[in-house]
Design a protein around this nucleic acid. Structure first.
Lengths: 152, 152
DNA sequence: GCTTTAAAAGGAAAAAATCCGATGCAAGAA
DNA sequence: TTCTTGCATCGGATTTTTTCCTTTTAAAGC
């Protein structure tokens, strides 16, 4: 894959801070014409550098006051079982993030729900997925940082 | 705080999937006039429901191939020490997410870097922060789910 | 030095956002 | 009931922005 130019990197850095950009405003910062900026953005979108443009909603404002980091271990690491687990976990709306990890646990999930009761309901749903051997939850008491900005 | 109307909830749900919305397109789905949609969005922005509009960049495409979930414990939970730790951690660009948790560990961090070597550099920086007693890292082997969409 | 190709820029039309004034509608008061 | 007040909604008009198309520039290979 082709390397990104300095202008393209700068562009991505700007965009990941603001998705409601006005192309005309970007021309000054990038020292490019209106249409060049337009073409670059389209190129970065088409080539998959930009996956999405999203609005970040404040979870507390919409009543989601309970975030939990869950560590999960499975009984078996057989590919088909792992894939089945991943598939089912991804389908759960409460799961915001999910990772397969190396280390003590096999999976780390981040779950956002309304309250402890909703979390209890979630854990019940999670437990229905076969092959789980161990679940350890750490509830989030406060946010230090929550960002979508990547450092590159 | 005032409850959100059905239309406003629907609007937030749409916006968290697409920040490059065209107000005219939303009128049909929300059954509102162009200007009403406009006013509602401004209201939701001003009242803090919408924290930000951002572009989601593919980390792999910009060379960030190493994600790590780090569990950290501190020696002391004295407020000023905890706040100092939080402040310093939040200032590290490699830290994408950081939480104060109840459970076995005190903090969970998500760190995104280029490669293991960059991670090593990061750990060195992290270790310079005083008061840390234990650090346990789990590197991410694959992504099950990565979303900014909240379920409400 | 000439040719080929891709990126960059400018113009103009189309589309969208924004502002403004007007209308409707509900709740409360006379 | 009728009037008033306040607020959400709406449509028109203007401004701004996007988008497409064409021309120009620049760079690379021959």
């Amino acid at each position: 894959m082709q390397e990104l130019s300095k202008q393209e990197i700068e562009l991505l850095r700007i965009l990941q801070l603001n998705a409601r950009f006005d192309i005309t405003d970007l021309t000054e910062r990038l020292n490019m014409s209106r249409t060049s900026v337009y073409d670059r953005i389209k190129k970065l979108e088409n080539e998959g550098y930009i996956k999405d443009y999203v609005a970040i909603i404040d979870p507390k404002k919409v009543g989601l006051n309970f975030t939990v980091i869950i560590n999960v271990s499975l009984n078996s690491q057989r590919l088909e079982l792992v894939e089945e687990f991943s598939r089912q976990v991804a389908a759960l709306d409460e799961v915001v993030e999910g990772y397969v990890t190396g280390g003590i646990f096999d999976y780390v999930l981040k779950v956002v729900v309304k309250d402890p009761e909703a979390f209890n309901d979630f854990i019940r749903k999670l437990s229905d997925i076969p092959n789980i051997s161990k679940v350890q939850s750490s509830f989030v008491m406060s946010y230090i940082k929550q960002s979508t900005k990547l450092h590159f």
